[in-house]
Amino acid sequence: MRGLQLSLNQTQKIRLQKALETLEYLSSKANSNASVTVADTIPVNYEDGVLKGHGTAENDGEVVATLCGVVERVNKLIYVRTLRARYKPEIGDIIVGRVIEVAPKRWRLEINFSQDAVLMLSSMNLPDGIQRRRTAVDELNMRSIFEENDVICAEVRGFQHDGSLHLQARSEKYGKIERGQLLTVAPYLVKRRKQHFHHLEQYGIDLILGCNGFIWVGEHVEAKDDMIEDRASKSEQQNAKSSKYSMSLEEQEKTYTPLETRQNICRTANAVRVLSSLGFSITVEVIIETVELSISLNLDIHEMLGAEFCVLVAEGEAERRRRLMKKKG
């Protein structure tokens, strides 16, 4: 219920309470004694020789948790996975970030981590798709690719020797994202999945669930396969951009997002908001379900943030999980 500031009436309060209790009950059944708080002893069999991992320490011959969370075991390795922590990047994560600085040969991005991430100019494909060494001219033109405050989607490439975190954009689908909303949720709500890019065809929107808790909901963009063919038009575009205010009519036409799509974007964004305020883990399936629920109830977009819908979502989730448990037996 954290961060949930809703004016609930009495019945709603009770209903929500009940739904959350059901959820707690269901989850406690699944992993009862795996969760620990600081200074809890973690039972181990010493004869096997354990490997103490993150969040554990040895005290008087016992393994003790130094963090609150869930105990995870991988063969002999024991570590504590914290329930709520800052985002910690892993190689291959898909993240969404915001450019905060254009530095020599690199952009600096805020990605919700304890340090800023670095996206090298050379880790980006050039806009025209040509393979070559980056020149000084390219460096000067970096702002034509990303500017400050642009929202970018990229992949974590790894930590360099100096400890800085580097990103990369492997293909065309990474890069600047426009015409949509950036939402910030607690990073632990986004689980690592095989797919983080989702195209919701029925709504004509793209959904990017960044592992760092930045979620992008925006108008769908067709991934361009061949950048070479419209090289000419691209350069024109760049010229147009440099003189920002003289945006041609055509350009406006191109960037126009239909009202319906905008509504869909807002609806989906609100669904994410509701889910994150309830503290439910955010997956594309749950988001779609929530959106559909709101549509079936004929709710207006703004009503989705109201108390009633929130309770309904909680109840729905509780019901869903109960069914799931039953199925498993």
Binding site: M120, S122, S123, M124, N125, L126, I130, Q131, R132, R133, R134, E155, R157, G158, Q168, R170
Partner: peptide, 11 residues
């Protein structure tokens, strides 16, 4: 596999 920057510069 590592996505080295060289892969973006090699013609």
């Amino acid at each position: 596999y590592k996505g080295s920057e060289i892969t973006r510069e090699v013609a």
